[in-house]
Design a protein around this nucleic acid. Sequence first.
DNA 1: GGGTTGCATGTTCACGTCAACATGCGATGC
DNA 2: GCATCGCATGTTGACGTGAACATGCAACCC
Lengths: 344, 344
Amino acid sequence: MTTIRSEATSARRRGPSMADVARAANVSGQTVSRVSNGRHNVDPETRERVLEAMRRLGYRPNSAARALRSGRFHSIGVIMFTLSSFGNMRTLDAIAIAAADAGYSITLIPVPHPTQGEISVAFDRLSEEAVDGVIIIVEAHLLDENDVVLPAGLPVVVVDSTAGDRYPVVDTDQAHGARLATEHLLGLGHRTVWHLAGPERSYSATHRRESWEATLRAHGADVPRALVGDWSSESGHELGLRLAADPEVTAIFAANDQMALGVLRAMHEAGRSVPGDVSVVGFDDMEESRSFWPPLTTVRQFFGEVGRRSVEALLHEVESGERDESMLVATELVVRASTAAPRA
Amino acid sequence: MTTIRSEATSARRRGPSMADVARAANVSGQTVSRVSNGRHNVDPETRERVLEAMRRLGYRPNSAARALRSGRFHSIGVIMFTLSSFGNMRTLDAIAIAAADAGYSITLIPVPHPTQGEISVAFDRLSEEAVDGVIIIVEAHLLDENDVVLPAGLPVVVVDSTAGDRYPVVDTDQAHGARLATEHLLGLGHRTVWHLAGPERSYSATHRRESWEATLRAHGADVPRALVGDWSSESGHELGLRLAADPEVTAIFAANDQMALGVLRAMHEAGRSVPGDVSVVGFDDMEESRSFWPPLTTVRQFFGEVGRRSVEALLHEVESGERDESMLVATELVVRASTAAPRA
DNA sequence: GGGTTGCATGTTCACGTCAACATGCGATGC
DNA sequence: GCATCGCATGTTGACGTGAACATGCAACCC
C-alpha cells in the first residue's frame, strides 16, 4: 500500500531523497539537510555517517525543491542571437565562467532569427519563472521594435548595446576603440581614413562610425562616405573591391576583423599591396587576426572583461536589490603588419 | 498575522502564485492550473477571467514547483570547454535551437580549463539534480582520465568525440572528410599529401590523421611524417614555415581551417605561391574561410546537423528511456582557390 | 543543586504546482 | 420521473527541501 509507486512508475523513477538518506543514516531529514549544506553544527561522526549514506544511495539534492523553498534559482538567463558573432561567443564564455564561479548556472535563451516574432518567443520563455536575472546580448533596437515586456522586478543587464536608461549596460568603449584606430592611421600620415561600417541599426556599428567621423573632423581631415556592410567577411570583400578601385584610398578602418579580412582579400585580388598601397585596421582582435596576410592591425576588445563585469553587475542587483551603473570597458590598439605610412 | 512577510522581505518578494490568481479570478487553484496548461475542459468565460487575472497580476508559473511536482526539469545540460573551437560554438547554437523547439532550455556547464580538477568540478554540478539529460562536448580522453562518475540513470549523449560504448555518440564523419580532402589533392596529381594534425589526444584529430594516412596508403602514395599542431592558426603558421622550406611539399591537408590559415600566412612569408607552388586544404569550413587569401578549399562540417541530432537522440532517451544508436554526419568537400594541380 | 548556557538533533510546516479524486448540475434516455 | 452521463469546477495531498521552532543533554556558574 505504501510503495506501489516504485513499481508502477519504474520507467521514470526518481532518485533518493533526503528522507531516504535520513532513514539510511538513522537521523532526521534536517540533519541530512545540514550536512548537505555544509553547516558546522553537526557532530563529525554523524556527518560521516550521513555522507556515507549519501554516497551509498547516490543521493543528489533536488534543485527544484531547493529553488521552490528558497525562492532562488541560482541561474542566470542569457538571451542572445544564435550564430552570433565571434565576440558574443567570447562574452558568453566569460559570462559562463564568472557565473559558475559565483555558484550560478547559465540558462541559454536562444533567438534563432532576429525577426519580430522570434524575439518575443524568446522573451516568453522568461514568463516562466526560472532564473534570478537576465543578461541580454541582443541589439537594443530589436527590443524597442518588439516592445518586449520583461517581467517586472526581474534584474536585467544589457551587454554590447544600449538600453536607454531602462537597464544598466556593460559594453566595450566603442568610441574609444574607433578613435584609436582612426588616429593610428592619421598618425602614420594618411590624409584621411575610409570606413567600412557595420549594419546601420547596430548600436556598436553606429558608435564606431560616429567616433571615426568625429575623430576625422577633430583632426581636420576629410570625411569620406562610409560604406555599410553586414559584419561578414563576404561584405567586406565586396565593398573592399570598390575601395580597391579608388587610388585615393590609402587607409581603411573596418568595423570588425571579419570585414577587414574581406578587404584584405579584395586588395590582393586587385593587386594593391597591404600595407604598401593601402593600410587596413580592424576591430575585435579575433584569434585568427594575427594570422591574416598580412597580420592585421586591430582594436582589441576585452570580451572576457565585459562578460565578467556583466555577471558582477547582475548578481549585485540580484543579491542586494540595488541597480548598478552602466559601465564601459576600454580597448587597446594592437599594431601588426597591415598598417604603414602612405607612399610618399 | 497573515502577511507580515510581504512587508518584511520586501527586498526579495516573490511573484504572485496560482493561489493569488485563483483568488483574484474567484476560482480554485486547480482551475488556474488548467488554464495555465492549456487544458480544454475549462469554460471559455472562466478561462478568460483567469487569463485576465494572470495578466493583471503579472503571474508567471514557477518552474521550480512544476519541476518538483513532475520530476522533470525540461532542461538539457551541455558540458563543454569554454573558449572552445569555432565548431563547438556552432554545435552549441544548433543544440540550443533544437532544444528550444522541443520546449527544453539549455543549462551551460562550462569547463574553464581542461585540467583534472576542473572537469570533476563541472561534473559535480550535475550532482545537483537540475537537468533531464546531458550532452557532453568534451574530448573523451579527459573523461577517461578523470574517471568521472556521471549520475546513474542520467541520459547522456557525447558529441564530437568517442565514449567507448558507454554512451551514444553523435559526430561528424571525420574519416570521410579526411579522405575527401586527401583524395582531392591526390586527384589533382600531387605525388603525396603532407598533414598538419591536431593535438595527439584529440579523437577528431586522430581520426582525421588516421584516415589521411589510410587514404595515402590505399593510393600507394608515400606517407610523410605528420606535423602536430594545437588547432591554432599560430601553430599552423609555425609548422607551415617548416613545410614551406621543403621544396618537396606541394600539397598540405591541415586538420582545421585555422591551422590552414597559418599555413597560408607561412607560404606567403616564404614566397611560395598558393596554389601555384603548394596546395592547401582545411577542415571545418568556417565562415571566414571563403575570404582567406586565397579562398580556402576545405571540408565542410555540418555542425547544425550534429547539434540537432544530438538533441534528438538525447530527448528520445529522456522521453522513452531507450538509448539511441551512435551516428555519424557526413561531410562535403568545398573546392575554392587554394588547391590546383602541381607544377609540371 | 537549581538555573543557565551551548550544542547536536528532531519536528513541523510552507514553498507552488498538479494528479487524483470528489462534487454538483444540467441534459439525455427509457 | 428517475437513473445516467458529461462536463466544469473544487478539495486534498504530495513532490523534496530547509527555516523556525522545539527538545534533550552535558557542562558550567554561583
